[in-house]
């Protein structure tokens, strides 16, 4: 009898252990040209796999919408200048127009013609610098007001690029938009304590162990290091960094965030991180702020509540704003 009394609590504690969620994580490759990490607490391996499937499906779906290089829906619109688009793409473009206005043009989805010149230069077998005159010509066709919408029927929307030289590039907001969709779908599916990291775009659900997910801000000078650790609960932390994507020409680095002012890689910062509940805005703002002086940026940020920003300047100075202060 005594033995049984001793064994009961043992089984009870074992049962408790097996009921509490377990941490699982994995990396997904082949989406949005980056590595995607899925990490969190799940009731079982099966539940974790269900979450991963949901993430994969969503990434695949949105990759096929935003892709402008192979055969995406957006590429089709760029090629034909007039196309019927999905509600998802129409919503994303509508957000892009809103973001362009809110950021005074410093995050502009209509910069496709300029960005593609840099993309070609970066991806070439022997990287080169794009021709200055060509860049300036392309920059004449980056006005978002050259977009026209026509909605007919409830779910059929046609978009026309009235300027035939204009093309759209959603690179600055695509991952942010997807992170919001991912969060909505994962929460609806019952997952309550996890995060997804799409190459620096981190979206968290729940608060890990009560304190929030511990997200580091990458040290621009040291790939393995961080400069700051931030607790993130049901929110997004997005970093735009000059170290993320670049090429070298004549011993100098040229990164992927192109300033609408200079049409060259913006040289004010090494990175800009934004902590905000909405992933699309966090993504748009991290790009916009990268192209703006700190004061201009702070003026833009006044439109937002509960937002945090960290700038790392080219001189390695750290500047903090809002909830990251």
């Amino acid at each position: 009898m005594k033995k049984i009394l001793f064994i009961i609590p043992l089984f009870l504690s074992l049962a408790l252990v097996s009921c509490s969620p377990t941490r699982y994580n994995t990396q997904l490759f082949g989406y949005f040209d980056t590595v995607v990490s899925v990490d969190g607490y799940f009731e079982s391996k099966g539940e974790f796999e269900r979450a991963c499937e949901l993430v994969k499906e969503t990434l695949k779906e949105y990759d096929a919408i935003f892709d402008i290089y192979t055969d995406g829906e957006l590429k089709h619109l760029n090629d034909t200048k007039k196309a019927e688009v999905s509600l998802e793409l129409a919503n994303a473009i509508a957000f892009g127009i809103k973001a362009e206005k809110a950021t005074k043009g410093y995050c502009n989805i209509a910069m496709g013609s300029v960005l593609s010149l840099w993309h070609q230069a970066r991806e070439a077998d022997v990287p080169y610098l794009p021709d200055r005159a060509k860049l300036e010509e392309a920059a004449r066709h980056t006005d978002v007001s050259g977009l026209s919408y026509s909605a007919y029927n409830a779910d059929k929307i046609e978009i026309t690029l009235t300027d035939k030289e204009t093309s759209l590039d959603m690179g600055a907001i695509a991952k942010g938009i997807v992170s919001d969709v991912l969060r909505e779908r994962l929460v609806d599916a019952g997952f309550d304590n996890m995060y997804v990291n799409m190459g620096g775009n981190v979206v968290t659900i729940g608060n890990k162990d009560g304190e929030g997910w511990n997200v580091g801000i990458q040290d621009p000078a040291n790939e393995a290091g961080i400069v700051e650790a931030v607790k993130v609960t049901d929110s997004c932390l997005v970093t735009s960094g000059s170290y993320q994507r670049y090429f070298e020409y004549d011993g100098k680095r040229y990164h992927h965030i192109i300033s609408p002012d200079t049409l060259y890689p913006s040289d004010k910062y090494l990175s800009v991180s934004v902590l905000y509940e909405n992933g699309a805005w966090a993504d748009a703002l991290s790009t916009a702020l990268f192209n703006m002086d700190v004061d201009e940026g702070k003026a833009v940020l006044e439109q937002f509540d509960n937002i945090g920003v960290m700038w790392i300047t080219t001189d390695n100075e750290y500047i903090y704003y809002g909830t990251l202060e």
Partner: peptide, 9 residues
């Protein structure tokens, strides 16, 4: 490692 952070942005 990595200041014990879960992930890096």
């Amino acid at each position: 490692g990595n200041g014990d952070v879960d992930t890096v942005s």
